[in-house]
């Protein structure tokens, strides 16, 4: 009986999902970062892990705004899913121009935004800071970036109280 209850309780808390849609404006890059940072806080990630996810999200959202919509505006969707075990997945979806050659676009230093001094490191950053990355896109069909990361039980690495101290001292969200 007790087991049954624990199981039901667990099932209810097993996964959390969010979805947000926003205008493809550069000021919303910061908003997307703040939202994803708050979203993953539940599994007690390290400061570095939070920064990793924020950076990857920032890259994907920036890509949607600059390349997908050519800075002319549109809508960007961010979906995120987080399990109690610390499995995070994030999707950044736009309905912009899409990418003809995804493999080429993902090459380090490849950029079509040279005149705006884009470094061509966006996808490389996503790959470096997350555990996995998949990009689905074709011309006229928009772009769907799917990435995931596993938070290796940060709770076991350091006591929560200690982590809170580190968190506050760094002055970061």
């Amino acid at each position: 009986m007790e087991n049954e209850l624990t199981r039901i309780e667990r099932k209810q808390n097993m996964e959390n999902q969010i979805s947000m849609e926003f205008d493809a404006l550069s000021e919303n890059e910061g908003l997307a970062r703040v939202v994803i940072a708050a979203f993953v806080a539940r599994v007690d990630p390290t400061v570095d892990q939070v920064e990793d996810v924020k950076t990857a999200v920032s890259e994907a959202v920036t890509n949607a705004i600059i390349h997908g919509y050519a800075e002319k505006g549109g809508r960007v969707v961010m979906k995120a899913r987080l399990s109690d075990e610390g499995e995070l997945s994030v999707d950044i979806i736009d309905s912009g121009v899409g990418i003809a050659d995804v493999e080429q676009a993902m090459q380090p230093l490849f950029t079509t935004g040279a005149e705006n001094e884009r470094s061509g490191m966006g996808f490389s950053f996503m790959e470096a800071f997350m555990d996995g990355l998949e990009v689905e896109s074709s011309p006229g069909q928009g772009t769907h970036v799917h990435m995931w990361k596993r938070f290796v039980c940060a709770q076991e690495q350091s006591a929560p109280i200690l982590q809170a101290a580190v968190w506050n001292r760094s002055g970061r969200l």
């Binding site: 970062r33 924020k54 950076t55 920032s58 920036t62 001094e117 966006g122 950053f125 760094s170 970061r172």
Partner: peptide, 10 residues
């Protein structure tokens, strides 16, 4: 406290 690849471009 935060920098993404845009910083590299600058």
């Amino acid at each position: 406290t935060f920098m993404d690849s845009s910083g590299l471009g600058i």
